[in-house]
Nucleic acid binder design. Structure first.
Lengths: 380, 380
DNA sequence: CTGTTAGCGCGTTCAA
DNA sequence: TTGAACGCGCTAACAG
């Protein structure tokens, strides 16, 4: 009888050890084992406890979360919807979120929507079908009807980075306005007066709008400075170069010093590629400051100054917020905005009286072959 | 009676629509609904079919995968264990894997082990407890006992990138030997004769060993050339700089032209940082070729030459392989090795008679402040 | 073609 | 303290 617990009875498949087997071998009832698992030790005699403990480890028993979830709804599953897994920001946040899940005994179900509404819907349905206890959400705010339903049902959802119109979910992200101001002030202090914020289409994306607001507010404090927002489409190769080119031409009569403020990591990359194709160097020709600290930020030319987001913390905190909701917290909507950190590098430090002014930049950029050839494309 | 299907009966919680409700409202039995879901249309009258279809959409019914899995073991869940989610290679593979999962109607449960054995064990147990149908595995090959058990139980597992001693799981990854040769031959053709392969500790990691083998084989074809392998610890800040320094000193009497071959993306980053801290430029001072194409490869100085891996395809293929096993394929162990692609950029193209030779490099590197200060640390 | 019945592995009453 | 019995939502035999 002692050798009867072979793990490979017949066919190749792993036979699951069930609570019933444990109970039988330990000579107790299923309930006792269940209680043991649930930590209700005060309802078990010491003898039983030991007996069960031994049997469990001997058989290598692991309770089935499936069955467990089926009963009480505690699946210990959290779904995460990511807009674009190729976006380093998303991955960095994912890193923190996964760590938190592991800490609190949850498991992450990951879906990448690739910025596709349809896949978003499908993923949402899939996650729902597994009875995830909550959702971490980071996607385009388009077509929010399914989201609204979740909201009405008081289903636990925490938004990452972007607010969504008409949904009162908790949000964890960056203090975008503050970060926008921080970035802009730094550029102004360095003597830049012609500054362009380069972003992907603002269309209702609250984080982008927040950064723009911060940017505009800070610009407004400096009379005589000129600030404008450039929208670029990252899915159109070479578009960034064209937009920059136009900007340079437009400002060719300006006496001011020029700088670019990249709205996020993916824009940064495209800007860096575009500038290179135009043979423009920073900070000599133009200043540059980018949202999102990336591994390669220190590496390009004299190093790119950045606004670093506490991505790991954002992900970790978001999960904690979500767990609070899952555990029944009913307080009003919460918004946790963490601070960005300015990392100064060469790209924004031209010194106070460098050579190049707007007119020079325009000339130079015209001279170079303008339309960025073979720019490596990284979809939005 | 028609208005009776409210989704929010009482409390805030989302009440799940069950198959029983659908059956009741449609006036049929649960079995019929189940058959409908399972696509057994030939066992249903047209009338029933329509009735069920309507009721399902009206109620917004979604079958519970939990309950479904509990019964037949088809959870449509796949677990993925990632060694380090901060490693761009892992993320790129994840991207492909997730896409494949979505295509085939599976959902991915993601665990990041952070190269920690303990977390690996825990994650394995967690995934098992959810009855994942298969496992995508990419981690250190240490402590493989739990893996072996899975192997004996014929549990579907596909290995990513690295083979594991004593386990006969399918593998999808790069043709490392071929890629190593490809890389080395390119450097030799460009006139480099003193080449160092810089890798993280080889310790049983088959992919690293494969690349080294390819490297050594290619070096052996070129008499008079010198090749050596440098092991670096990425978790020790500045270690790369020290190792390179020592290499330069060791080769200071050589007449040959020097090049570095980075063993993966994370090593590339540290090498680039180290060279910069030593004020060494490529390709003037030293040639550089890196495994793993990264978004920033074209951006650093004159651009870094790379060996690009078909990461998306690796992830996608791995899932397909796994599904084949899940669906009962019993053929012998398979190894799918995809080809790397050489992307030539400035860092390996010094032209045939550039200035710098080993002796100069040694001198120059000594002159600069050698111990990389404040090197941004990115753990292994 | 269709419905009835019996579990899947577990948590949770309710008695003993 | 312990155990028997029921049900979670679903699928799969087995009848009709």
């Amino acid at each position: 009888m002692r050798q009867n617990h072979s793990k490979l009875p017949a066919g190749g498949g792993t036979e699951r050890v069930t609570i019933a087997q444990v109970a039988r071998e330990a000579g107790v009832s299923k309930t006792s084992v269940s209680r043991f698992l649930g930590g209700e030790f005060d309802a078990l005699s010491v003898h039983l406890r030991e007996q069960i403990d031994k049997t469990i480890t001997r058989l290598g028993y692991h309770p089935s979360q499936m069955a467990r979830g089926l009963k009480g709804g505690r699946t210990r599953l959290i779904g995460m919807l990511v807009a674009d897994i190729l976006n380093p920001y998303s991955v960095a946040v994912l890193h923190g979120a996964e760590a938190a899940c592991q800490k609190y005994g949850y498991t992450l179900m990951l879906c990448n929507t690739g910025n596709d509404e349809k896949r978003e819907q499908l993923s949402l349905a899939a996650l729902h079908s597994y009875s995830v206890e909550g959702l971490l959400f980071n996607t385009q705010g388009r077509n929010v009807t399914p989201l609204r339903e979740l909201g009405q049902a008081a289903f636990p959802v925490v938004l990452l980075d972007r607010r969504i119109e008409g949904c009162d979910f908790d949000l964890v992200g960056l203090d975008n306005i503050g970060a926008g101001q921080l970035a802009t002030r730094h550029l102004l202090e360095q003597g830049y007066t012609d500054i362009a914020l380069v972003v992907q289409p603002l269309y209702g994306v609250s984080s982008r709008q927040g950064r723009q607001n911060g940017f505009l507010q800070a610009m407004a404090t400096q009379p005589g400075s000129h600030g404008e927002t450039l929208e670029v489409h990252l899915d159109q190769p070479g578009h960034v170069a064209v937009v920059l080119q136009e900007f340079f031409q437009r400002r060719r009569h300006s006496k001011g010093r020029m700088a670019l403020l990249a709205g996020n990591g993916m824009v940064s990359l495209q800007i860096a590629l575009a500038l290179r194709s135009m043979k423009l160097k920073f900070p000599e020709d133009i200043g540059l400051l980018c949202f999102d600290e990336l591994t390669w930020s220190p590496l390009v030319d004299c190093g790119i100054s950045t606004i670093e987001q506490p991505t790991y913390e954002i992900g970790f905190t978001a999960i904690e917020r979500l767990l609070a909701r899952i555990n029944g917290e009913r307080s009003v909507r919460m918004e946790i905005l963490l601070d960005g950190k300015l990392i100064k590098r060469g790209s924004s430090m031209a010194g106070n009286d460098s050579t190049a002014h707007s007119s020079d930049v325009a000339k130079k950029s015209r001279a170079a072959n303008s339309f960025a050839p073979s720019v490596q494309q990284t979809p939005v």
